[in-house]
């Protein structure tokens, strides 16, 4: 398979990569030989049409589903995830589209859900007593650092606004993600101001040196924040472009299949593709 991403300079080793991933659900092929590369310290946007298989790809990378074939590598080493816990152990944290929070539980409990801390000594070892106060303090510290305002970390998540909930989910990922943070449509359910805060959060994660995978439908957001854009179509990667070098229309053309990356790395129009109107302005070669 030819590498369609058109990079020329020898790139640094990817933090997280995948080769030839395949996942079938009955007769439906959700991932069809997909490749993936995330470089250190970058924000990589993953874009694609509904049903292109973005979510399945992300689930394979975050351990929520196990691919039928292909390989996932963390820092160059092949790994096999049998569940979200496996991916977490490798420092990969995911913010799911529906956030995966327990609404009736408080902010601190949610931040530490599935990895609660126990008190030191006998109380923790024998009586399994949780370090509630310590976890609350730590939760406050993380939320403060990321600039996420909640009234109290003992407040149930269901009393928070959509943006605050998103903030809690991001904070959970940021607090424990040592290698990669994956975010699935973090702004889809948010208003303009709250979206801006989430983009700001992503920026802060990048500033901390943590690479972020951002799945999004929102082209302005993608072009605002991403260092590179991974275009997914029909279950596989069809292009990786730099937002600095391409226009939104060109990326939309790649998503719909009106454009493709030619053998020379330039974009070319696909004649028999379904016309969407954007291809006329987006066509042609830029380089």
């Amino acid at each position: 398979m030819s590498d369609p991403d058109g990079r020329d300079a020898p790139a640094p080793d990817p933090v997280l990569s995948a080769r030839g991933l395949v996942k079938r659900f009955g007769r439906v092929t959700a991932i069809d030989g997909a490749d993936f590369d995330l470089l250190p310290g970058e924000v990589l946007a993953v874009v694609g049409d509904n049903g292109a298989g973005k979510s399945s790809l992300i689930k394979a990378l975050s351990g929520a589903l196990t691919p039928d074939a292909g390989e996932v590598r963390v820092a160059g080493r092949p790994v096999r995830f049998h569940g979200p816990l496996d991916a977490r152990r490798h420092g990969i944290e995911t913010v799911y589209q529906d956030l995966a929070l327990a609404p009736a539980q408080d902010v601190a409990s949610n931040l530490f859900l599935g990895r609660e801390r126990r008190r030191p000594g006998l109380l923790g070892r024998v009586f399994r007593l949780l370090d509630t106060r310590g976890m609350r303090a730590e939760a406050e510290r993380v939320l403060d650092e990321l600039g996420i305002g909640v009234r109290s970390t003992s407040q149930p998540v269901e009393t928070l606004s959509g943006g605050q909930r998103q903030g809690v989910a991001v904070a959970r990922a940021a607090a424990f993600g040592t290698r990669v943070v994956i975010m699935d449509e973090p702004t889809a359910a948010l208003g303009v101001a709250e979206s801006a805060r989430v983009l700001d959060l992503i920026d802060r994660l990048r500033a901390r040196g943590l690479p972020v995978v951002l799945i999004s439908h929102n082209m302005p957001h993608v072009f605002d924040i991403a260092d590179r854009v991974h275009v997914h179509r029909l279950g596989r990667r069809v292009a990786v472009v730099s937002p600095a070098e391409r226009t939104m229309n060109e990326v939309v053309g790649l998503i719909t299949g009106a454009l493709r990356v030619g053998a020379d790395g330039a974009l070319e129009e696909v004649r028999d593709a379904v016309r969407t109107g954007v291809t006329r302005t987006g066509g042609g070669t830029a380089e």
């Binding site: 569940g83 979200p84 816990l85 977490r88 956030l99 995966a100 327990a102 609404p103 859900l113 599935g114």
Partner: peptide
């Protein structure tokens, strides 16, 4: 609360 969220939380 939400068993799928619990699963995804590990």
């Amino acid at each position: 609360n939400d068993s799928e969220a619990a699963r995804l939380s590990g």
